[in-house]
């Protein structure tokens, strides 16, 4: 089968030889891995990566849940409009969206200018070239990936259950906390894991909205390989990222199951 040959040549082979590089350059052994996990500077990169991915996951869930809920209960026409806004932002070219945020968040950008004109601040806030900018940009990009699975779960919940609870005297607050939220846990799990895993390995947005002082893992991998030509360390970092990703993916498979439902 041609597809099998292709994937073997361009996926399996390059990844295996990259792994070999990570344990042989500059010397045979696990030196690169020990350096990455032991050195404080690299530890900081790992911390940044998990921190940003964690914050982005929490923020997208808090914003995404009410939106997914509304999508399920709004009249069809309004729901379609809201869905169109979500899909338009999701399908617009990634660089175009990131460019938009670069312009919005820059020192002389509209957000800083408005805040200064309103007299709320005197100096422009540093909104870009730091982890704050990265978090804003990544939240923007990941939001649809938490809304869509949540929407699927929420619209699959049988409304009769909610009605039964209401008839037997449950208040809306109780219905939410004791019925809707527990029943939507699979959607929450799917959305959050997907966002977290995607955020861990993201390259474009951190590279454009982040600064050189606070790097994330994907940027560091690219820098080691492209600028510093430090292939051993770069590929070891890549395999740490791959291992973490696979662990979370295994959790995803256990929580959500493979295929069919998204």
């Amino acid at each position: 089968m041609p597809a099998l040959v292709f994937l073997f040549l361009f996926l399996v082979l390059p990844l295996s030889s990259l792994f070999l590089v990570s344990v042989t350059e500059p010397s045979l052994g696990l030196g690169n891995y020990a350096k990455l996990l032991g050195d404080a500077a690299y530890g900081r990169v790992l911390f940044n990566t998990f921190f940003v991915a964690g914050v982005v996951t929490c923020v997208t869930l808090v914003i995404g849940y009410p939106v997914a809920w509304l999508l399920a209960i709004l009249p069809a026409r309004t729901a379609h409009l809201l869905m169109a806004a979500i899909l338009l932002s999701m399908w617009t070219n990634l660089l175009a969206r990131t460019y938009g945020w670069m312009v919005l968040l820059q020192r002389t950008g509209i957000i800083n200018r408005t805040l200064i004109d309103l007299g709320l601040i005197n100096e422009p806030l540093p909104l870009i070239n730091n982890l704050f900018g990265v978090t804003i940009g990544m939240t923007y990009i990941m939001l649809p990936y938490v809304i869509l699975p949540l929407h699927a779960t929420l619209s699959g919940i049988d409304p009769a259950i909610m009605q039964a609870a209401a008839i037997t005297g449950a208040k809306p607050r109780q219905i939410f906390w004791r019925i809707l939220l527990p029943l939507s846990l699979p959607g929450i799990g799917a959305g959050c894991l997907m966002v977290f895993v995607m955020a861990l390995g993201y390259y474009v947005t951190p590279a454009l909205l982040g600064g050189t002082a606070n790097m994330m893992l994907a940027e560091m991998i690219a820098q080691q390989v492209q600028s510093l030509l430090n292939w051993g360390l770069g590929s070891a970092a890549a395999f740490i990222l791959l291992a973490v990703t696979l662990v979370f993916f295994a959790i995803y498979v256990r929580v959500v199951g493979l295929g069919k439902r998204s």
Binding site: L11, P14, A238
Partner: peptide
């Protein structure tokens, strides 16, 4: 397993594929 293998490029972070192919 074959099915999973064909879909596996979706799971691997793109940056890893990128440097592996770059080396190649």
């Amino acid at each position: 397993a074959l099915h999973a293998f064909f879909i596996s490029p979706m799971i691997v972070p793109v940056i890893i594929l990128a440097i592996a192919l770059y080396a190649l």
